[in-house]
Amino acid sequence: MLQVLHSRLKQGYKTIDFPDAEPALPEKFLGMPEINPAKCPDKCATCLSICPVDAITQKHKHLFIDLGRCIFCGKCRDICPKQAITFTKDWKLATTKRDDLIISSHTKEKKFNPNPDIIKLFGKSLKLREVSAGGCNACEADCNVLETIGFDLGRFGIQFVASPRHADGILVTGPVPQNMKVALEKTYNAISSPKVVIAVGACAISGGIYRGNEEVNNGIHELLPVDLYIPGCPPHPITILDGLLRLIGKIKE
């Protein structure tokens, strides 16, 4: 007993101040990409062909990046001869609409359109059932970590629960293999309405690197009505936390 108390004193207080203070992100962290059209050379399109997930498109000489597909590998930045694409350290990537994930050089400020109904219903308490459907255990690990003392998800009234019957919503990771489709739908149906659906990671949003494989469903976008998209491969825990807090109105601005 004394040893437990002694060790508790030694380990100290470790919960981060986020969202009151800026989070500590790694120096080389790749967050929100930025496109500079002035630098983008005409008839170049090298970034389009190198992108492993075909996240970059070009319309009328304007580049668009689909964050729902992007795995933040940074290859487009590295290949660009004129440094027209850069990655900022902005961790705020989550959106409520699929289309809002597509950014271009026109994107002044990324939109987050909160749903007032969700805030009203779940603003003070949100219980989530996590379903890993083909996730590689990276998105899963970064959801798990939110429950540790470092992030202490519980202080915001959010908790991962053991049964869909206890849940207000479902959080899905992975591209949804054909072999997980039925289990995912059953879990979704076991949650009573009204309920929220959250897609975490490029795989759950669009299929990610597995997009187009006949063994998967290209994510949950066409299977379930998604309320929150959190892009990344995997998203940094701060990006996930930020998205969840915006969804329930605990981060405004």
């Binding site: 997930v53 293999p177 072999n179 997980m180 494989n213 063994e215």
Partner: peptide, 17 residues
């Protein structure tokens, strides 16, 4: 349940994926 067809997708590579 996690079968995503990785080995099949690797055949024909190496490619950008």
């Amino acid at each position: 349940y996690q079968h995503r067809g990785i080995e099949k997708a690797l055949a024909g590579g190496p490619d950008k994926r």
